[in-house]
Simulated assay, not measured.
Amino acid sequence: MEPFVLRDAHVTLSVPTAADVDRVAEVCADPEIAAWTVVPSPYVRADAEGFLTRMVPAGWAEETIFTWAVRAPGSVDGPVLAMMGITRTTGAPGQEQAGEIGYWTAPDARGAGLTTAAARLAADWALDPEGLGLSRLQWQAYVGNWPSRRVAWKLGFRFEGTLRRYGPQRGVLRDSWMASLLPRDPREPAEPWPAEAPRS
């Protein structure tokens, strides 16, 4: 599949390229991204080069991982503000398809609703029969990643529980939260925000 742009009035999603190497290397060195994702830690420029020149193009070509750089509205090559991905997880042609959404946000772009807007665009495409046509889109995050959980909550993902020692991270299995979104689910919170969540 050829990479394509998703956009609305709030955000633009375009394929990240080698021109984004320095920015991605800078952002992925952030301790918060290292704490909650599977990016290498410490993260160096060579990691960004491998991600942008090999992993991203291969994912699109094989139609297994669809990765976008999140940029300001109207800009297809502006600074990377976040990264958004849809990974096809199960299914074969003619069978129901499932996938997973993942994202990170640069420190200087947090708190403005950018990731929520980008995730909405990506999720809608993934679940649209005219898009990727998934029957289930899941979200998972390591327990304690409340910012990521808030994005999923805003999009209507339904929390399904905590999976103990489920999510791998650099050789360790961590407890993980799991939630899902189906094609007909409303794209709005499906339940009250958890009482145990920290205030923000």
Rank of each mutant, 00 (worst) to 15 (best):
T115E: 05
R88N: 00
M55L: 15
R150Q: 11
E32M: 13
L6T: 06
A117H: 13
R45Y: 09
S200Q: 15
L81G: 11
A109I: 00
P79K: 02
W146K: 00
A118F: 04
P79E: 08
V15D: 06
A122Q: 04
R88K: 09
D22K: 04
A112D: 12
R164T: 13
T162E: 14
V172R: 15
I86G: 02
Y43G: 04
A197G: 09
G131Y: 08
V39E: 07
F4D: 05
I65R: 14
A109G: 01
P93F: 05
Q95N: 13
R54Q: 12
V151N: 10
P107F: 01
T89V: 13
D8W: 12
G85T: 15
A25S: 10
G59S: 06
P147K: 00
E191D: 15
A119K: 03
P40M: 11
E2C: 02
G78K: 03
V15Q: 11
G131E: 09
L114T: 02
L132R: 12
P40H: 10
E49T: 11
Q140T: 14
I65N: 14
A197D: 08
A69N: 07
L134Q: 07
G91F: 00
S200D: 15
T53E: 13
N145A: 02
L137H: 05
E63L: 07
A25K: 00
E191M: 14
A119C: 11
L137P: 03
T64I: 10
V76M: 03
V76I: 12
T116F: 05
R164A: 12
V39R: 06
R71N: 06
M178E: 14
R174F: 15
D175L: 09
E188N: 11
T67E: 13
M55P: 04
R174P: 13
G50K: 07
V27I: 14
L163P: 04
T115H: 07
V151Y: 09
L181F: 01
R174Y: 15
A117F: 11
E191F: 15
A18T: 10
M1P: 13
W60A: 00
A69L: 07
A82K: 08
A58L: 13
H10N: 15
